[in-house]
Amino acid sequence: MEIIVCIKQVPETRDVAVDEQTGVLLREGVDSILNPFDLYALEAGIRLKEQYGGRVTVISMGPPQAEAVIREAYMMGADRGFLLTDRAFAGADTLATALALAAGIEKIGGFDVIICGLQTTDGDTAQVGPGIAEILGLPHEANVISLGTVVDRKLNVVRDGGASIDTVAIELPCLITVSKSIGEPRLLSYRRKLAMADAAVTHWSAGDLGKDVRMFGLKGSPTQVERIFPPETLTSQEIWEGSAAELSTRLAEKLRELKFVGGDMA
């Protein structure tokens, strides 16, 4: 089975502040890491490879130093990697990003499954995965929480659709985005690091993709970020008094009203 996993290098977001005046992330002293959701995409891909054989290929778009996250994917179990790196890709919104990655995947060719993390921790849009699938004309499912088996060229998955949890069989080739429920991602293997020390990472420029380069980067982006700001935090409090039984019933009602829990009150 040929598996492609899309990954991204993002700033490590703990305690990252946003300059409220300029809307710019304050990245000073912040390390770059592999997008945490992509660890789960890699884990899903490597598990499929372990079960069905084949190969895990990773692809990323970013500056040359983003090669670090491809090397990290090698240490988890990926077999080869492609980095789309070119100034022409800079400033891409989700559409231009999806177009570039789709073009790269087309050029790699011969895949059965494309796996993306649910979203990135720097953009949080969750649009790029489904975007790639639409561009490539592939069936796709987002927010997959569990992988099943492949039967008759169909991949069985369980997806969380918000209102319902559905078991779906998707015809290959397809694209899925996976959530953190998919399984604990494995750690980086030092033995894999040694084994893959000489493995190359293929760099492609915008021109290498054989498309009109005006569809990539800032030029190809119909949306622009006007302002980035931290979400507002609510500080209002409610204080309730009553017996334990009354209070627990009331608390359960409130949690249900806020949709923090589901189910019947019976």
Binding site: I33, P36, L187, Y190, R191, K193
Partner: peptide
């Protein structure tokens, strides 16, 4: 590895 470890796994992020 020289002492017979099966592998060495690296946890490089806070998570």
């Amino acid at each position: 590895l020289a002492q017979g470890a099966i592998d060495v796994f690296i946890a490089n992020t806070a998570d």
